[in-house]
Design a protein around this nucleic acid. Structure first.
Length: 344
DNA sequence: CTGACGTCGCATGGGC
DNA sequence: GCCTATGCGA
DNA sequence: GTCAG
C-alpha cells in the first residue's frame, strides 16, 4: 500500500468517526495524520517501521500501529469495524455542500437515507423538510446542491475559470470604492484544480462593494451575504467568495485567504514564537496568559515580546516573520519555510 | 499526567 | 418578528 | 489521538 492510499484510509476513518459523533479532536487527529503523511517528504524507507512513523508530526503510537498494519497486510481491522456501522454509499453524501456529519446522520437515522439518489427522492417528496433541524429552505438547498454536484463534481480546472476570475478582479478594481483587489485562494497559488474563487477587496465602503459584486453580470445566484463575507454562484457553476476588509487588514486577509491551510498554520506558529498572534485581520500582541502571572506581583512581568512591525503589504508580513517573500505557488508547507528562512 | 488542539461569519430552525 | 444555539464551511 | 509543558 502506498503512502497516498494509507492517507486516504486515515481520511476515511476521520469521516466515519465524525458520523459516529466522536470527539472532534480525535477526528482532527486522524485528518491531520493523513495530511501529514501525505506531505511528508522525508526518507520513509519503511511504512512498517513504527518508530520512524512516530517521528512524523501528528502520528503517534496508535496511528503508527494502524499504518503498520495497513502496510503489512493491506487491511485494517479498525477500519472494517467502522465501515460495518454504516452503508458504504453514505460517504458520498459528504460531497453535497451544506451537508455535514450531523445532518447526514439525521437523514440516515430518521429516513434511512444513505445515498445521493435516495436523498434526491426524499427531497422531492418533501420528507426532508419534515425532519427536526431541517426545513423547506434546507431541503431546497440540498436539491440545488445535488444538481450542482452532478454538473461539476465540485471541481474546476484552473483554465476553466481563469477568465471569470480575472474579469471579476478587473471590474471590482475599477470600482471607485475599491482600494485594493486580488484573487486569493488556490487560484492565486496557481493550483490546477480549484474549488472556488476567493476575492479580497479593501474598501471604506463595504456595502457599496458588496452590492456591486452581487449585481455583476457573472453572478448567477447568491448563496450567502453579510457585511464582511459574501458567497455567490457564478455562471460557470463555481462558487465565488468575496471578503471585504479595511486597508489595514488587507495584507493579512490576502495572505490568510491565499493559504494554503498548512502554510497558514506555519505562519501562525512563527508569529507565536515572537509573542504575537496572527489571524486574517492583524498581527497583534499575544493576550496576557492568565497562568503566567502571579509571579512578582506588583511588577510588570514582561514576556520577550518583540515590537510589532507595521505591515502595509504582504511582503511586510513575511519580513516581520524573518522570512523571504514566498510566492503564492509555493505556499504548501512543502519546504518553503526552510527555503525562506533568513539565516542571519 | 494534564490541557490545548483556530476561529469566525453566515444561514437556519425553533423557541419565545 | 426577534433571539440564540447549532451546523457548516473556510 | 497527538503534542507540549
Amino acid at each position: 500500500m502506498t503512502k497516498s492510499q494509507i492517507a486516504e484510509v486515515l481520511e476515511e476513518i476521520a469521516t466515519l468517526l465524525e458520523l459516529k459523533d466522536e470527539n472532534p479532536f480525535k477526528i482532527r487527529a486522524y485528518a491531520n495524520a493523513a495530511r501529514s503523511l501525505e506531505t511528508f517528504g522525508g526518507n520513509l524507507a519503511d511504512l512498517q517501521d513504527e518508530e520512524a512513523l512516530g517521528k512524523i508530526p501528528g502520528i503517534g503510537k496508535a496511528i503508527a500501529a494502524k499504518i503498520k498494519e495497513l502496510a503489512g497486510t493491506g487491511k485494517l481491522k479498525y477500519l472494517e469495524e467502522l465501515r460495518a456501522e454504516f452503508p458504504a454509499a453514505i460517504l458520498e453524501l459528504f460531497s453535497i455542500s451544506g451537508l455535514g456529519a450531523k445532518k447526514i446522520k439525521a437523514l440516515y437515522e430518521q429516513l434511512q437515507i444513505s445515498s445521493i439518489e435516495q436523498l434526491r427522492e426524499a427531497c422531492e417528496l418533501g420528507r426532508v423538510a419534515q425532519l427536526p433541524g431541517f426545513g423547506e429552505t434546507t431541503q431546497a438547498k440540498i436539491c440545488t446542491a445535488i444538481e450542482q454536484r452532478a454538473k461539476h463534481f465540485g471541481y474546476f480546472q484552473f483554465g476553466q475559470i481563469a477568465a471569470e476570475a480575472e474579469t471579476l478582479r478587473r471590474d471590482l478594481a475599477a470600482h471607485a470604492d475599491a482600494l485594493q483587489v486580488d484573487v486569493a485562494g488556490s487560484y492565486r497559488r496557481r493550483r490546477e484544480i480549484v474549488r472556488d474563487v476567493d476575492l479580497v477587496v479593501a474598501t471604506k465602503k463595504p456595502a457599496a462593494i458588496t452590492e456591486f459584486f452581487i449585481k455583476h453580470a457573472l453572478v448567477e445566484s447568491i448563496i450567502a451575504q453579510g457585511p464582511t463575507k459574501t458567497s455567490v454562484r457564478l455562471r460557470s457553476g463555481i462558487q465565488c467568495d468575496l471578503r471585504v476588509v479595511s486597508s489595514a487588514e488587507y495584507p493579512f486577509a490576502l495572505n490568510y485567504f491565499t493559504g494554503s491551510k498548512e502554510h497558514n498554520i506555519e505562519m501562525r506558529s512563527r508569529a507565536l514564537e515572537r509573542g504575537w498572534t496572527l489571524n486574517e485581520y492583524r498581527l497583534a500582541r499575544l493576550p496576557p496568559d492568565p497562568k503566567a502571572k502571579k509571579l512578582r506581583a506588583g511588577q510588570a512581568v514582561r514576556r520577550p515580546t518583540i515590537k510589532i512591525p507595521t505591515v502595509r503589504e504582504e511582503a511586510d508580513l513575511y519580513r516581520a516573520l524573518a522570512l523571504d517573500f514566498v510566492p503564492p505557488e509555493l505556499r504548501e508547507n512543502c519546504g518553503e519555510f526552510e527555503a525562506a528562512e533568513k539565516h542571519s
